[in-house]
Design a protein around this nucleic acid. Structure first.
Lengths: 314, 314
DNA sequence: GATGCGCGTGCTCATCTGAGCAAAGTCTGT
DNA sequence: ACAGACTTTGCTCAGATGAGCACGCGCATC
């Protein structure tokens, strides 16, 4: 496109999109035929001079969603738009809202839903509307008698999702990670725990997030791991955790010993699921998001457009 | 619009603008008729959910231009878009470019063009292309034997505009402001100076910028005024200067004594002009821009969209 | 319970728009 | 200078779209 046409295409785009003239009117205005106007508008779009954004907290990016499905083998993807987002927190809320919307729109609604816990899950529970399902029982899928500053959030999350969905909540009364493998095996052998785990394994769908392998991890906050533990895991290739299990970029468990002390569903349990919804957003979680998607840990990914773009660039 | 329609309108807008589906395809997708889709899209636009921006250094805002013409009585207005602008300097360059474009597109090209000098004028001269006119003589309209760090820029600006326009430049060999009124009158009586001023008064068009009344003023830089002078002028209501003459918000000369020591066309000379093009941009110049427009000092304003918006908000 | 009003819906029709095509124009190398 | 390749232009035509209209439903009022 030469310089004259470039300028003309800008003028045409202004008159078309801002002044709402028809192509014929623009042609009269710029002394060109309406066909030329049409071509100039096409060029302006192709050259990227025209940017169209949907400004709304529920706006999504269907293009990226389709590419994630097609190029990354996901059954479904939800990518929320960044347009107009002012803070990282606002983006997290958008992702949580989108995930809640997705869950509420699932048909059929899962009779049993397995959930993890954490900041993201709490947000999702918060954004679910009352009556989002007519009877969905919720089961925790990983240990979470929390030792963090805000005790009970893990339980509150599961209970809230269940209550709003007209179902019951089955909590996993166990720490996330135990100090001895034997203790972990003993706990899993406990009748109550074993029953919850069985229920978790038979859930119709799973909903979980993932954590980055850094010092801000909820496992450090909760006292299950030290920052030194994290450093060691990172050294061994860990990029983050899913349901408390640290994996590398290929989705493999990094530390088998640690994994054996972690209570809850195994990663392969998740991989066998028909519906496994992962909600992951934020720059620090890019690596773990990539690992989750690449290793088939989820069938559905809910994320933001930056993260999605990053996954597709790899 | 209820909540359901709001969400639907967002989905429809995504499919329409991002996925390029027809309204009928969208209807099939969302289980609604194509007429409903059309209405949802109209609503999405009305509610401001759809933002269309033209991203180009030469993009303008015809809406604001029209409003400036209609509501502020300008003969013409050029408002450059801020979309995609990263720095204040980039915006100034855009305005200068737009002003150069406007000048080059003037028909008939002015046989004699009166110009002021300063940062903005230098930029405009730089952006003019060789051969922008077939024979436009340039005359300086205010004093400008510069005492600033970069001597000769005032002259260089006029000469450059003339050379590129295939004409000659007539420089005003005088300081901008003199210390004694008598000296100013003596200089204006000088045969050379008087001839240039006569030529300036008979110019077919004028091109000038304006300065804010603050310590960064080019008059302070050049040594014609002290910061104390500026403070006093501001106290007396000055909002900025045009061709060296400080005016208040109503366009009245603030200090008659100072004005009488200032060499060049009077403000009323400018107000009588058929074509007076003012290029004014930047937050500090909002007040002077408003004064220039309100008091009829220019017939054509070239500015940026923030400044234009501000003028219209008053 | 009947009546009237307002709103949303689906339709007709005129207009707008993009794809495809042939003719005209432009550039290049010999 | 000219043939051939390529690009640009104006057109036909079918599909997409928006304005206007009539219908029917829900709601308030009498």
């Amino acid at each position: 496109m030469d310089a004259v046409d470039e300028l003309l295409s800008i003028r045409a785009a202004e008159l078309y999109y801002e002044e709402n003239l028809t192509q014929e009117e623009i042609g009269r205005h710029l002394q060109i035929t309406r066909w030329k106007v049409g071509r100039l508008l096409t060029q302006a779009k192709e050259e990227g001079f025209v940017r169209i954004e949907i400004l709304h907290s529920r706006a999504r990016r269907p293009q990226l969603e389709r590419r994630l499905r097609d190029e990354r083998g996901l059954a479904d993807a939800v990518v929320v738009s960044r347009a107009g987002v002012r803070s990282e927190d606002e983006l997290q809320q958008r992702v949580a809202q989108a995930c809640a919307d997705y869950l509420a729109a699932l048909r059929p609604s899962p009779a049993v839903l397995g959930v993890s816990w954490g900041r993201t899950l709490t947000d999702i529970a918060h954004h679910l509307r009352d009556g989002w399902s007519r009877g969905t029982d919720v089961v925790q899928i990983n240990g979470g008698v929390s030792m963090s500053q805000r005790p009970g959030t893990a339980a509150a999350t599961a209970v809230s999702i269940a209550q709003k969905g007209g179902g019951t909540a089955a909590l996993l009364p166990s720490p996330a990670i135990l100090e001895q493998r034997a203790t972990k095996e003993a706990i899993e052998a406990d009748r109550v725990v074993a029953r919850v785990l069985d229920a978790a394994r038979s859930a119709n769908a799973y909903l979980f997030s993932a954590g980055a392998a850094d010092h801000d991890s909820v496992h450090v906050d909760s006292g299950y791991l030290t920052t030194a533990d994290i450093d060691r895991l990172v050294e061994e290739g860990a990029v983050g955790d899913v349901v408390g299990r640290y994996i590398d970029a290929d989705g493999r468990v990094v530390d088998a010993g640690l994994d054996a002390r972690t209570v809850g569903l195994s990663l392969d349990d998740l991989r066998r699921a028909d519906i496994a919804i992962a909600a992951i957003t934020g720059t620090p979680k890019r690596a773990i998001a990539a690992a989750v998607v690449a290793s088939g840990l989820c069938t559905v990914l809910v994320t933001d457009e930056s993260t999605a773009q990053h996954l597709l660039d790899e």
